[in-house]
Design a protein around this nucleic acid. Structure first.
Lengths: 216, 216, 216, 216
DNA sequence: GATGAATGAGATTTCATTCAT
DNA sequence: CATGAATGAAATCTCATTCAT
């Protein structure tokens, strides 16, 4: 009656995607295993066959999310790019990646509400950002050497600065729109915001004599 | 057995506080009406007497949260302060307020996950930020007139910039700590971050000749 | 639709009786909470309202069983009875009590399979047999003083002896019948067995010169 | 992945042992086919290949148990032994056998809870005790002829008497210990009990003039 | 105002068993 | 012989909400 003997990898993947959607939309507690199974066109039992529990499923979804995010941010150490361009592109890519992948924000928020308890059990995620920070370090170092950036920039701080600006805009767009009474959803509004982030980062990172003119 | 006949206002307040804690800690779906009632030392029936449903209770908690937040940000239009000092203080106060009130972040995130559906029904919250934006407008205008700030600054953008930096750091501290492998919880780490936010905002807002020396 | 607001004590009692039946018939693991609730004409939720879990329900059933058993064995210290008659009556009553209360045997066996883990959590059952052993002590002491019984009889050993003979006959009647190829269910078979137990106990307890003639 | 191609008899034996353990420990309903298979290091499908269902597996385990028990009680009709010694040894062996084989007690109890329904379907077990009863008959007859035992002893009754005393002590040790507040597990406690059983049986079976002195 | 008792729907998880290979 | 994947039914327990008093 139901499909038998499918490709197990594909089944696991379908379950995971369905779980990501559900967890992102309604959070861990609100999420329903029934719905996850149904949308994955799998019986509940199969779900439990592959993932041992709702928790484990959540962890798997979270790990997948991180991996996708990191994948999106990968191509920045390309040495042909000028440091400033590399930074600009990283900012742009970070924003695009979060924008394209709204589940990611929701899952990360969810995980933060649970104070990191799921992630703590996952060894796959720890230090996942090391390569990114490493390549940011490179960018900043190159930029400093060539006199474009000021010295002593901490890559963690720089990353935290622009990623906060990307993330929060998207993450809290609904309450922000209502409270600030301004639309944040239109493509132009978003492009403007990315441009703004770049400007902020430029002002912060560039050496004094290279800073943009403020009278734009 | 005998009716307690307590002050109804106090009872409502107790319920609301308990609800805020529960909703913040476990989200709307995970929250349990039983637990809220028990922690408020109230019978479930009383809870339903004062608030009609779990949803209404959530809305009430959300509204309360916004009011507290706004209350915290109130005293900045004081005309005695220099514009730059006023801005600095607003940043500081925003961070402190979110830090002291972790429920607020969780509730706002929760509301964003629900795509603002609760807030849309609440008339009390809309335009709640108008006074704040108005006083920011004043600060920026004064600063511009006196040549401290550059011209054409958009108060919404400036507010969004520093509040993103305050909010995201606190909201996502758990995943950030794990992914970036750096502690964000210590008082000094937090003070440093506030200082950093101020620096970023200064660079962005100050007129060119007033900008801080980047070689700090 | 369903009966509202019944006498809660009666409801609890109904649940307990139904649970005893179910646990006795099918054991802890085989027992179904659904069936227990249905037979008690109660919704499952009410069952969980009064007893927190299946385990607690089992413990409650076990405690009730012990209390009923002990109640049945109560009236033996009556000082008017001759020691020998008192002993005879205790044997008889023990057998009757177990025979009338087949759930008791099943529940006790169940508890033994679980190696006493439920009972260990119950404070109500421990030393429940103290009064019985005390009154047996009295009987044996009186009998010894009057020269009917031999001296140095251990009440625990005597009790264990005749209760083993009562219990095992009833507990294992099904396998015994098949293996020994003899009916054990008829009233006369049972009366004969009780008579046999009495004879065995007499031979063991009576002083030498009082022992029954073996050539019956 | 590659077929193990093990000795089928050995595989069946492993399954049976694992099943005995599981059924004894947790009863028929609580037992899990998964666990039985895993502990036997066999895939579930193999288990179903050799035994058609959980029920059949239980019956097989039960039959095996009876055979082992009977095997243990076999060597008593040896005509060299004096009748009294033969009886003593049979008692001793019965106790030892049950003590060494705790699964047996649990399985028999389980079967009794099911009111013998599994056993009724098994032809192998019926009259399994005939040889034992036959040899008891011989012992009692020899003993009577030589004046050691009194006449008219029913072997079924005698067997039932001492086997009740052996079985119940072991079967219900956990509840008995708690209710009677006396340890029954130590080797000396058990030796004492076997000695007690012998004394009881002696008093019951021996001809009047041969009975032991009660003033021990 | 206040409470204990009650409800119906539904949540996660488990299990004996079978199919396809 | 042997296995991983699949299934359907059912089990225990939970929860927001309401009724009767």
């Amino acid at each position: 009656m139901a499909p038998r003997s499918q490709n197990p990898e594909e089944v696991k993947e379908r379950i995971l995607r369905s779980a990501s959607d559900e967890f992102a939309r309604i959070g861990f507690d609100g999420a329903r295993v029934d719905r996850i199974a149904k949308r994955a066109r799998v019986s509940k039992n199969m779900l439990y066959y592959y993932y041992k529990s709702k928790q484990q499923l959540f962890i798997a979804a979270l790990e997948k999310t991180y991996e996708v995010l990191r994948e999106d941010q990968k191509d920045f150490s390309s040495p042909e790019l000028e440091p400033l361009q590399a930074l600009d592109q990283l900012i742009h890519q970070t924003f695009i990646s979060l924008e394209r992948n709204p589940n990611a924000i929701r899952l990360l928020n969810e995980e933060n509400r649970h104070e990191g308890k799921f992630l703590k059990r996952s060894s796959r995620v720890k230090n996942l950002y090391n390569p990114l920070l490493q390549s940011m370090q490179n960018i900043l170092y190159q930029g400093c050497k060539s006199g474009v950036f000021r010295s002593n920039l901490d890559p963690v701080i720089v990353y935290l600065t622009f990623s906060s600006l990307c993330y929060h805009y998207l993450s809290n767009q609904f309450t922000l729109q209502i409270a600030l009474n301004r639309s944040l959803e239109s493509p132009t509004a978003r492009q403007d915001w990315v441009k703004h982030i770049r400007e902020v980062i430029h002002m912060y990172c560039l050496a004094e004599h290279r800073r943009p003119d403020s009278s734009i």
